Simulated scan of single mutants.
Amino acid sequence: MTELPLSPLLKRENFQKLVDSWKGKKLAVCGHLRPDGDCIGSQVAFCRFLLAKGIEAAAIKTDPIPRNLESFVGDTPYIDVKDFDPAGWEMVAVDCADEIRVGKALREKLPTTLFNVDHHISNPGYAEHNLIMAHSCATAEILSELFLSLGHHPDEVTANALYVGIATDTGQFRFPSTSTRTFEICCNLCEFGANPAKVATFLYEQETMGRMQLLQSFLSTLKLSLDGKVCTGCILDGEYERTGTSNEDSEGFVDYARAIEGVRVGVFLEENKGKIKGSLRCKDPIFRVDTIAKQFDGGGHACAAGFRVESTIEEFYPKLVRILEDHLQNSQVAG
């Protein structure tokens, strides 16, 4: 294994001392609503790390584990939030940009957070101990660096989970946050059993016909605005029911909008009973889509962010375009 020294920030956090202080505690490893690969991968990896250190731990889920990620959980203990008895447990949050993102049901059971590890630039640091590294490509990358640098040897399930988190949050190593260190860490994970071919097969080559029909519907809605600088695609109310799919099947759709030549910002809008979930993606961090999301009480990364509003797409879309127009003009002036 290639030696990876801790980055200066991680040294300052004195992670080993923190882990030692958790001995005798019961730690609930929590992720965000509608979990993605980085969320599940980080939950699995951190939970297994804690168990290996003799600390009682379990991962807590509010929403179901996405179908294409189930194979990477292994024998990691997962407890559904509705079955979770919080007595004696403390929360560890992974990949959660703010404390609300764990979900209302879990937040009511565990109102405070002991440790918060994340890579979202908008994370305010809401826990007793916080490790926020906005330059990292994924929370799984932060955890990988911690584990490997401290001499922890992850088992095969943990190595694959960490690799899944990194691979998905970098868009298969295509996004600007991908660095030489990202590849160094992944190389180390492969030495511990991470299997890139297996990961790619389960993530991207197990599609259902329903998801293909949903994608077809989404692509038919793509619309360019602001002289081709913005592309927006939608999932209209009722489309999941029509295609026999769920919201996990639209994961990654926003990247089709972002990928069009000349587009600065790609937008995904999902309509559901008077509410909209929005996702924003850009190719260049100069466009800081997290600041757009913040105007709707959302957040995220410079190149990837999200928000929720109560509205319909018909009502909301013109407002969003006006905000995007001002934002792009200001971004270009600043750049």
Rank of each mutant, 00 (worst) to 15 (best):
M1W: 12
M1C: 07
E3D: 15
P5D: 10
L6M: 11
L6I: 03
L6K: 10
L6V: 07
L10S: 07
L10Y: 11
K11A: 14
R12V: 12
R12C: 04
N14S: 04
S21T: 13
K23E: 06
G24F: 00
K26W: 03
A28N: 06
G31T: 01
P35Y: 09
P35G: 08
P35E: 06
D36P: 09
D36M: 01
D38C: 02
C39I: 04
S42I: 00
S42H: 05
Q43F: 03
A45K: 00
A45S: 12
F46K: 09
R48Q: 13
A57W: 03
A58C: 14
T62I: 05
D63Q: 06
P66L: 04
R67D: 02
L69M: 05
E70T: 14
T76A: 04
T76L: 09
T76M: 12
V81L: 00
K82S: 12
K82C: 09
K82D: 09
D85T: 10
E90V: 01
M91N: 14
V92W: 05
A97T: 10
I100Y: 07
V102G: 05
K104D: 12
A105E: 15
E108D: 14
V117S: 07
D118P: 07
H119K: 04
H120Q: 05
G125A: 12
Y126K: 13
Y126S: 06
A134D: 02
A134T: 06
C137T: 11
T139K: 00
E141H: 06
I142T: 00
E145D: 10
L146D: 02
F147P: 08
F147C: 15
F147W: 13
H152C: 06
T158W: 07
A161Y: 05
D169K: 00
T170E: 06
Q172M: 01
F175Q: 06
R181L: 05
T182W: 03
T182R: 03
T182F: 01
F183K: 11
C186N: 10
C186V: 14
N188G: 13
E191V: 13
A194P: 00
A197S: 11
A200F: 13
A200T: 14
T201D: 14
F202S: 08
F202A: 14
F202R: 15
L203T: 11
E207V: 08
T208P: 01
G210E: 06
R211E: 01
M212S: 15
L214G: 12
Q216R: 11
F218H: 06
S220H: 05
S220K: 15
S220W: 02
T221W: 09
T221D: 14
K223I: 09
G228Y: 04
I235F: 10
D237C: 09
G238K: 01
G238N: 04
E241C: 04
S246A: 09
F253R: 00
V254H: 02
D255G: 09
A257D: 06
E261S: 13
V263P: 08
G266I: 02
V267R: 02
N272V: 10
K273A: 09
G274C: 02
L280Y: 12
K283N: 13
D284H: 03
I286C: 10
R288K: 13
I292A: 08
A293S: 11
D297V: 08
D297M: 05
A304F: 02
E310V: 07
E310M: 11
E314G: 11
L320P: 07
L320T: 00
S331C: 02
A334K: 15
G335C: 11
